[in-house]
Design a protein around this nucleic acid. Structure first.
Lengths: 227, 227
DNA sequence: GTACAAAGTTAGATGCCTCTAACAAATATA
DNA sequence: TATATTTGTTAGAGGCATCTAACTTTGTAC
């Protein structure tokens, strides 16, 4: 009975995991995370967030003081990163080994990421050849919860005549993924920059079978590339 | 808000799903299921089971009258079968596509089976070539929740000189799976029956690289085969 | 056929995650 | 700077799945 308690005491509930994950994701985007924002992305009300922050503070996963933005502790950040690791490995697996489109996988990964089975994730990692980035180009934290942000250039920084490889996107959203799909632009595509329009920053490029596509500055700022 | 409610009202909670599954599994073994038994396999106390039966009765998933053994309704049986379908597809996938040993997969499948994503299970089914039985030889219910029990013979019924294919087991247990592993006996193995011992029903067989293995009657009664 | 044991139920409580209503602090605006 | 708006917190309640304790029903053994 006691042993049972000890084993499960170290495991966070699914709900807690979602809060930790949101905290890490939002802090990557914004730097600071506030209660309002958390309640929006998690689909709960602010008082719910407040009480969860208090709970996570008791568990030393979050630094929390009334009326100040909550911040992950090192312990909390590590646990969050490990959940994100699972999420991104899953997305990778769903795309590469099961043939899903990258716009379909987020929701599925969201559900499976909470399962507790080191063997399962080890195996996936192995089958995928220990990938460093997920299908959206975001880094996959290592098994210790460290995130290695490789610096990728953005398409917008490239000069006419450059040949680069499309390797990820900034700020993945369903709309954006659908846009890329509609242009048949897939991860790994070799892009040739034909010309850059001075006055609005739009770029005309070719890749795969697309001989001439023009992307707006907004799009080009969100496409990560490798030379 | 109302729509949200309507959508989610038709989904059973993870806990409910586990009760439904247990109800179907136990009724296959025993015919009748009682509260004690349910509480044992689910690791809860009897009052918890009683109140869940009352809840499932309200949802028309179980026929329940005080002091009588609960029974699944047709609706309940269908929902249970669909969960078991997910479980068995998952086990199959984990074994065939991810290379897990069949003794490892139950626990993992148990966790993933509750995810809600028709596309995910459709894809698995497709990648597996629409299998009819799982790695333990149990039938995989079809997408309408119908279970097709093929009649398989047991090894014990075979005569010396027979050549058969090992296709499943009766009453899967971790111990038994470990035993089969220790003898390198894998699903799909072609078994040749060398001799049958009259007085205790033990059988001597060969398969793969094992030239001469003797199995007790108990073992031979649990091995399903196809001629 | 009574008494005892086993199985099942009811009542009442707990922990988790959620909510609404009301209040408090911080921030923006006039 | 005073006021209004936004953001955040506290208090109190509800649903879910669980428990323990006490009670009831059913089945069994003498």
């Amino acid at each position: 009975m006691t042993l049972y308690f000890l084993i499960f005491a170290i495991v966070n509930s699914l709900t807690e995991e979602n809060y930790l994950k949101a905290l890490l994701n939002l802090s990557n985007v914004d730097g600071e995370v506030n209660v309002k924002e958390l309640s929006t992305v998690l689909g709960t009300k602010m008082p719910t967030v407040t009480s969860m922050m208090q709970k996570l503070a008791r568990k030393k996963l979050v630094h929390y003081e009334s009326y100040k933005p909550p911040k992950l502790t090192d312990k909390g950040r590590k646990e969050a990163a490990l959940i994100i690791r699972k999420h991104r490995l899953l997305e990778m697996f769903l795309v590469q080994k099961m043939g899903f489109g990258w716009e379909e996988v987020h929701e599925i990964a969201e559900q499976i990421e909470h399962i507790h089975s080191p063997a399962f994730f080890e195996k996936m990692d192995e089958l995928l050849g220990y990938p460093k980035i997920d299908p959206h180009g975001s880094p996959i934290p290592d098994r210790h919860g460290k995130m290695h942000w490789q610096h990728h250039s953005k398409l917008i920084e490239c000069k006419p005549g450059s040949d680069v490889q499309f390797c990820g996107i900034v700020n993945s959203s369903d709309d954006f993924l659908r846009f890329l799909n509609s242009r048949d632009l897939r991860l790994g595509a070799k892009i040739h920059v034909i010309e850059v329009e001075e006055f609005d920053g739009s770029m005309t490029v070719s890749y795969d079978k697309r001989k001439r596509e023009t992307f707006s500055r907004t799009v080009c700022e969100r496409l990560l590339i490798e030379k």
